[in-house]
Nucleic acid binder design. Structure first.
Length: 545
RNA sequence: GUUCCGGUAGCUCAGCUGGAUAGAGCAACAGCCUUCUAAGCUGUCGGUCGGGGGUUCGAAUCCCUCCCGGAACGCCA
């Protein structure tokens, strides 16, 4: 059992004997000030109300009743009621062997208990290239998926391809117009068409491929729609891949029509008695289930609104065996959440869907906001930015922000800072460790996996580092449960900082073999955690920088 | 007007299930490479935690209210 669990049991026992109270949760935190000890608990504060006693008294009583043990060097009550623990040196170093011998049990909390989660994100309509505004969803979603998997959830990541709506028709018309232009024929660009350069370029490509074949051809739009979709989806997949994002599944809206799922869900919604007709349109009574007002399912002209296939889609997710659905959407889809949840409720599914709304990214260039819009064609392509600065800064940047924080991205700064970005701080720590191992090899000093006891790790900086390493699993677990991915970069940054300080304070490779060997073990453990953390946020563990 | 986010250092953001002197990066300033990578370290500067009330032994954190910014309020998707 790890130190923290052992300590938790001891505290629970102390509370039991002091107050005859059974406490389930005992929170631990690293004291802000390392001189306060190796670990602290604010448990006395949460007991103050129920016990009607001052936190300080409670803390003292808990300390007095703490069972004798061989892990603690000292315990103290500090401030208004914190209990601070200092571990014995010999137990303090256990974390090193724990990490080195069984990293899996060390780092994986298993809280997910193989719960099946379907995580949908990005789902950009294939009507243009991905721009920087989409990158946040991609990076955040992918990191969340990795984090949940790490903690024992069975996650399927899915991209919903809107290939059936009238946006596809607009795409086909836009391509056709560009195609005509390329052919030197008169063309009328559709209202609300897509003005992006990529669309123009592909329109030209279609002309190069097909020549004059499709001029005034009855199948022109059908063919262009199909080829446009294929092309743009491929582009999107390439962009995602360049950002190290991959999806387990691409689910096409059109398949819902093909399988009859849309019709079927419409039939059942009607049968539920929760629909009515007004002004020739069919409404769903979503307002009875938390929505602001009722929503149209079928327009008076007979067309379906977008929500109908979406309802069918979400039900398909559930029918495929996923009872926890997470959608990551932009805040511009805010109004959509209540109606979708209400619709699922009507179908008999409650509390299956969680929607994470990502705040918009404001892109600033030269002090002016650049509006991201595919229709206008004015957008900073994700591809270009990745070519410029590489995927690491982008992955790190987005992973480091809490999901519902608003954020400004200064393009100039992002470019300028590519050598001064926080991501290099953490990567540099890893590269330095590699250099040390390299150098140690030349000195005929190799990492010794059999080393289990440590006697030379006296520097307080090492103590800080070990304390921090011990927090890794807890950090991941909390991050997964609250879906706060930004806790991972934060942790890695702090860890890297502790290493850099230590690196500057001590010489690692001079001195007794034992002195060196013990340091190599700490470095090995550190290396392991950094690699693991980098993997979670999708950045490269560079051996050389 | 209604709903949802946000307002913390010059800038970008952490901290928010109430608790120890409010943190980091960048920017600015002053130091540190004959020694394991200076993409680093050390120090300094920098904050009425949007304003005002309230609850509490204790509030950046909870409640109320106001101000400012973003998003959404379609028989668009």
């Amino acid at each position: 059992m790890d130190l923290q669990s052992t300590l938790k049991k001891a505290i629970q026992a102390a509370i039991k004997s002091a107050f005859d109270l059974t406490v389930e949760a005992v929170l631990f935190e690293l004291p802000k000030d390392p001189t306060h000890g190796d670990l602290a608990t604010p448990i006395a504060f949460s007991l103050a109300k129920p016990l009607s006693q001052a936190p300080k008294q409670i803390a003292e009583a808990i300390v007095a009743h703490l069972p004798s043990n061989d892990i603690l060097e000292s315990v103290s009550v500090a401030g208004p009621g914190f209990i601070n623990f200092t571990f014995k040196k010999t137990t303090q170093t256990d974390v090193i062997t724990h990490i080195l011998e069984d990293f899996k049990t060390f780092s994986e909390s298993g809280v997910g208990q193989h719960q099946k989660v379907l995580l949908e994100f990005v789902s950009v309509n294939p009507t243009g290239v991905m721009h920087i505004g989409h990158a946040r969803g991609a990076a955040s979603g992918d990191t969340l998926a990795r984090l949940l998997r790490k903690n024992g959830y069975d996650v399927l990541t899915e991209y919903y391809v809107n290939d059936a709506g009238n946006q596809m028709d607009k795409l086909a018309e836009s391509l056709y117009a560009r195609y005509l232009e390329a052919a030197g024929k008169p063309s009328v660009f559709p209202e609300d068409g897509y003005h992006g350069e990529d669309i123009t370029a592909f329109g030209n490509a279609l002309f190069n491929k097909h020549g004059l074949t499709y001029i005034d051809h009855p199948e022109a739009l059908t063919v262009f729609k199909k080829e446009g979709l294929e092309h743009l989806l491929l582009e999107i997949k390439n962009d995602l891949a360049s950002a190290r994002v991959r999806f387990d599944s691409y689910y096409h809206e059109s398949s819902l029509y093909a399988s009859g799922a849309v019709e079927e869900v419409l039939k059942r919604l009607k049968a539920s008695g929760q629909t009515y007709t007004e002004d020739g349109a069919l409404y769903l009574k979503t307002s009875a289930y938390g929505d602001e007002k009722d929503r149209v399912l079928v327009k008076s002209n007979g067309d379906y609104t977008y929500i109908l296939p979406d309802i069918a889609y979400h039900e398909q997710k559930i029918k495929r065996g996923y009872h926890t659905l997470i959608d990551i959407l932009g805040t511009d889809h805010h109004g959509y959440v209540a109606r979708l949840k209400a619709s699922l409720h009507i179908l008999g599914y409650q509390d299956v869907l969680e929607v994470i709304l990502l705040q918009m990214v404001r892109v600033i260039e030269d002090g002016v906001e650049i509006k991201m819009s595919k229709r206008s064609g004015q957008a900073l392509a994700l591809k270009d930015l990745i070519e410029d600065v590489g995927p690491d800064p982008i992955r790190y940047f987005f992973a480091a922000r809490s999901l519902n924080s608003h954020m400004d991205l200064d393009i100039e700064l992002a470019r300028k800072q590519k050598n001064d970005n926080p991501v290099y701080y953490v990567q540099y720590a890893y590269a330095r460790i590699q250099a040390l191992f390299e150098k140690a090899t030349h000195l005929n000093q190799a990492f010794d996996p059999t080393l289990k006891t440590f006697t030379t790790l006296e520097n307080p900086l090492i103590n800080d580092l070990l304390n921090h390493l011990r927090q890794y699993p807890d950090t991941l677990k909390k991050a997964a449960l609250s879906k706060e991915i930004h806790k991972v970069p934060k942790y890695l940054h702090d860890l890297a900082g502790l290493f850099h300080k230590w690196y500057s304070a001590e010489s690692f490779l001079t001195g007794e073999p034992r002195y060196i060997s013990e340091r190599l073990s700490v470095l090995k453990a550190l290396e392991k955690v950094l690699e693991d953390g980098f993997e979670l946020i999708g950045i490269e563990a560079k051996r050389v920088m």
